[in-house]
Design a binder for these strands. Structure first.
Length: 596
RNA sequence: GGUUCCAUAGCUCAACUGGAUAGAGCAACUGCCUUCUAAGCAGUAGGUUCCAGGUUCGAGUCCUGGUGGAAUCACCA
């Protein structure tokens, strides 16, 4: 909890009790930050309480303000504007808080809640390489997992790999027909890229066949179904399901190449998982649950033997959950996997990081789990994020308008290198250090760019303009950290520690007060970000913190000061800012350099 | 067509969940490097929050109806 807020709210509760004999609860109200055109840092809006105070807004504010200044040590002044009571906190209180934050080595971390949360994200198909959309998914999932862990939950990151199905067979078939035995080794092409090429190749050849058939007089719908390649792909899928040796061997070989390729991409992204599920293992799950649902009336059977759920009462439609021939659909295995996940981890919450085009699917899935009487059903949550659009519109893999994840990251590294060299900032770095720096900056810029936007919203990515390194960006925040690191190195060499005497700090510079105020907000930011599953809140906060620090840095010289406790104090709050920047950026999966 | 989501400065995004005169960055313009990193700081300019009603002390935020856009409505995943 926010250190100042908590104390202040308790004092306000006392004030209501003493002045109006009214029991206010600290959980029932929130303080707002005071707008900067007014004096003070915390604002209580009194309008909602007028029926308890039985006075006008101004008089109520005055009364509470006077009480607080008289009775609460941390409140030094107040003013009332209309129904807004603006409060100023005593400088000594700010300095004490600064001391507390400075001494804490895990500021912002919460105690263990005992709650278990599973976060599923990434979930790639093994028929094509990762693209920009996957990057948003991966960065989001990874960051949300870190935020939930910081909030005190036990977190399990899982990846459900879609490694089977008709789309996989398409690239297998194209490879068999046109591949001539080439491999990642013989071609020098990354495994996932190689397979992706064959997926595209299938589509091209398939289209040719369709056109041919239409030319011969078939109607388009029929041509799509009758095209020999499609029939062959379906035949291959059957063989795979029957465990045909050659088919399974080919599948294993090609998926192996893809996984090797993915491993490289994940490593570049800095992303890992606690557990990986493969659909080839889970695609048969769920059938027994369908049976269970039939028995207790959740599902019903139609004449053709197919199994359905009727959700019209829940404002959803009827939905198929098992085909007439007894084979699974997407929903079948998701029902089964849902149960499997709970058996494996016994989560209180299970988060699915999946794009918003599947909103309907998850509504249906969660409703079904509820109807099946799964006790954990209310802990299921679809983190539905918006698509990433290009200036040209939506990304289409078949039209070649996708932004490849590996290429994009490499471009970011190159841009970082160019910028750094232009600014002449690689002096004194070894080649390895420089290389690492480019990666930290490039990846930081990219992650920050994708995470600073509210996950729910669709966003625009303009590769033309590349990604900025100035303003509200990852490198801006990293730069602030590097600057503070320089100060800490100097303090170290001058042998000045951070153990200031709070009574000797004297009066606070407004910039220092702003900075401490900002620092105190960090725990609340983590709490909100965890509640909303929103890394954007952390991104925005850490930007504001860096900006606030840069203002302080510009106006307040750290070392040019006679009183050593003042110097120590300035170093201490600088160090606290660096600590929070490192921590917050860490929650976004972004590293911070010591120099740049 | 049904359902769901979205619309805020020229552009990309915020707005603490109903609070004060709607804020940042980019782009444009003006200043600041012999003192701790100028990837920075300070400032100027930029708005009928898509439109019309409603709810109340107060609406970008909630409700209704429009307009424009997106997703989804498969025995695909």
């Amino acid at each position: 909890m926010n250190l100042i807020d908590k104390q202040l709210k308790e004092e306000i509760v006392k004030a209501f009790k003493a002045l109006f004999d009214f029991e206010l609860n600290t959980a029932d109200f929130d303080l707002q930050p005071t707008r900067k055109e007014f004096e003070g840092t915390h604002t209580l809006v009194v309008f909602p309480y007028l029926r308890h105070t039985k006075k006008g807004p101004e008089q109520s504010g005055e009364a509470i303000g006077e009480y607080l200044v008289g009775n609460a040590a941390i409140v030094s002044a107040f003013n009332v504007v209309k129904g807004f009571l603006n409060l100023s906190i005593a400088e000594t209180a700010w300095i004490d808080i600064a001391k507390t934050i400075s001494m804490a080595d895990t500021f912002g971390n919460f105690e263990a809640t005992g709650e278990k949360v599973m976060v599923e994200f990434s979930s790639p198909n093994t028929n094509k390489p990762l693209h920009l959309g996957h990057l948003r998914n991966n960065f989001l999932g990874d960051s949300v997992a870190k935020i939930l862990a910081a909030r005190g939950h036990e977190v399990m990151k899982v990846n459900l790999v879609n490694d089977r199905g008709i789309h996989i067979c398409k690239s297998m078939l194209a490879y068999e027909k046109f591949g001539q035995g080439e491999t990642p080794e013989t071609t020098g092409i990354k495994g996932d890229k190689l397979i992706g090429n064959y997926y595209v190749r299938f589509d091209q050849e398939y289209k040719k066949e369709i056109e041919g058939l239409i030319h011969q007089g078939s109607d388009p719908e029929e041509a799509k179904k009758k095209a020999p390649l499609m029939l062959e792909a379906q035949e291959m899928l059957k063989k795979w399901e029957q465990g045909d040796e050659a088919t399974v061997a080919l599948w294993k070989k090609m998926n192996g190449w893809v996984f090797d390729g993915f491993d490289i991409s994940y490593q570049t992204m800095g992303i890992s998982f606690d557990k990986i599920y493969y659909e080839s293992d889970t695609y048969l799950l769920g059938k027994d649950i369908i049976q269970e649902g039939l028995e207790n009336g959740v599902f019903f059977k139609k004449e053709d033997n197919s199994v359905w759920v009727d959700l019209t009462a829940d404002k959803l439609d009827e939905k198929l959950v098992l085909r007439g021939d007894g084979t699974s659909v997407y929903m079948t295995q998701d029902i089964g996997t849902c149960d499997l996940k709970h058996k494996d981890f016994a989560f209180n919450k299970s988060v699915y990081v999946v794009g918003n085009e599947q909103d309907y699917h998850f509504k249906v899935l969660f409703t079904i789990m509820e109807k099946l009487g799964r006790g954990y059903a209310d802990g299921l949550f679809h983190l539905s994020y918006g698509m990433v659009d290009l200036p040209s519109g939506k990304m289409k893999s078949r039209e070649g308008t996708v932004v490849d994840a590996d290429d994009l990251m490499q471009e970011m590294f190159d841009t970082a290198q160019k910028q750094t060299e232009e600014l002449g900032k690689i002096e004194g770095l070894t080649e390895n250090e420089a290389e690492e720096l480019f990666r930290t900056l490039g990846l930081g810029a990219l992650k920050y760019f994708l995470l600073k936007v509210d996950p729910k919203k669709r966003m625009l990515f303009n590769p033309q303009e590349s990604i900025e390194f100035q303003g509200n960006t990852g490198p801006f925040i990293q730069y602030t950290h590097a600057r503070i690191s320089a100060i800490l190195r100097r303090a170290d060499s001058l042998e000045i520690d951070q153990d200031f005497d709070a009574t000797k700090v004297g009066s606070l510079h407004p910039r220092a007060l702003d900075l401490i105020h900002k620092l105190t907000e960090y725990p609340k930011v983590i709490d909100n970000a965890a509640k909303d599953y929103s890394p954007a809140l952390v991104a925005q906060y850490v930007y504001e913190l860096a900006k606030t620090y840069n203002g302080f840095y510009q106006e307040v010289p750290i070392f040019n000061e006679d009183e050593t406790d003042v110097v120590k104090f300035r170093i201490a709050i600088s160090a606290s800012v660096a600590k929070v920047i490192r921590s917050a950026m860490g929650l976004l999966g972004i590293g911070v350099p010591e120099r740049m």
